[in-house]
């Protein structure tokens, strides 16, 4: 075979493989891509038309964005995030450092690993049930443990600031272990040599963390924050079960507000407009943060 001929066969073989790749990929990917994109298109259509299908321009967007309740729900979501995210991060990181430094038995580490996974895999709706049994008046175990079950008992779920703390505590309960597991896994990647060298130089536990371990954990902390922000924006199940967004609308986060708009008030136009805004906002958010995510690194 001449070199040119060999080159040609390898080229044609290659292009045949490329064609096969596209033939396999495109039909399936195209289908799911369309299936996932259709809702967005439909939401836009619903947002710019009225119930008889007439084009009404941006009126629904005006109503959606002009609704003071929207900003109320954004505010509640922000408060929730501000309570939940730093707490989970600090607690998770603290526990990871503690176990990393003090627990050396492999069996105990494995046991903690599996136990920490339990809250993460529990359905949110069941988590709501669990904490209903903790916080509810009369039967809730928290008040019983605090020793007050009478008329003056604390109404954890129907007192405005307490209800926020109650639903936030549930989030913290469920997701601190997630942060812990990621941070603990990150700590295992810190090269032993650099830790040893620092210890020989007399580094304290804190300087060892501050100057060496934190460096390795940084990308993971970022990852946790990004994932948790996305999760906070979709919080629904456990809040719906615990407070239903109440008392009043004090725990009505963005998802619950959208739910009420769409399925309690049946305001299709306004909720579709808001859904479009949320989808666009999340796409922008995703574009901004995607370089911190695994996809771009390869």
């Amino acid at each position: 075979m001449t070199p040119t001929a060999r080159l040609r066969t390898s080229w044609s073989a290659r292009s045949r493989q490329e064609r096969l790749a596209l033939r396999l990929l495109l039909p399936v990917f195209g289908t799911v891509f369309v299936a996932a994109t259709v809702p967005f298109v439909l939401a836009v259509v619903q947002a710019v038309t009225n119930s008889t299908g007439q084009f009404i321009g941006l009126e629904n967007f005006g109503r959606a964005l002009g609704n003071p309740q929207l900003y109320e729900s954004i505010k509640q979501t922000a408060i929730y995030a501000v309570v939940v995210l730093p707490t989970e991060l600090l607690l998770g990181l603290g526990l990871a450092l503690l176990v990393h430094r003090t627990v050396h038995s492999a069996a105990l580490r494995a046991l903690i690993y599996v136990s920490a996974m339990i809250p993460i895999v529990i359905p949110q709706i069941a988590v709501g049930v669990v904490f209903r049994l903790v916080y509810a008046p009369d039967y809730g175990i928290l008040n019983a443990l605090l020793g007050d079950t009478g008329h003056n008992q604390i109404l954890w779920l129907s007192n405005a600031p307490l209800a926020m703390l109650a639903v936030a505590s549930v989030d913290i309960w469920q997701w601190t272990p997630f942060v812990y597991l990621i941070m603990f896994a990150g700590l295992q990647t810190v090269p032993f040599e650099s830790v040893e060298a620092a210890q020989l130089d007399g580094a304290t536990s804190w300087t060892q963390f501050r100057h060496i371990e934190l460096h390795y954990l940084q990308p993971l902390i970022l990852l946790v924050v990004v994932f948790r922000i996305a999760d906070v924006l979709r919080v629904f199940d456990h809040v719906y079960v615990l407070t239903g967004g109440g008392p009043g609308t004090t725990t009505e986060f963005l998802s619950l507000y959208l739910y009420r708009l769409a399925f309690r008030f049946s305001d299709l136009g306004q909720s579709a407009a808001l859904a479009v805004v949320v989808m666009v906002a999340m796409t922008l958010f995703y574009t901004l943060i995607s370089r911190f995510l695994p996809a771009e690194r390869r």
């Binding site: 259709v38 619903q46 769409a262 999340m282 995703y286 996809a295």
Partner: peptide
């Protein structure tokens, strides 16, 4: 493809379920 898949993870389901409900 990979980025698109990952971006789906960031869509709040409630925003998507509104048009899905109609469909």
């Amino acid at each position: 493809v990979l980025n698109w898949a990952l971006s789906l993870r960031f869509l709040p389901p409630i925003a998507v379920v509104i048009p899905y409900f109609t469909i």
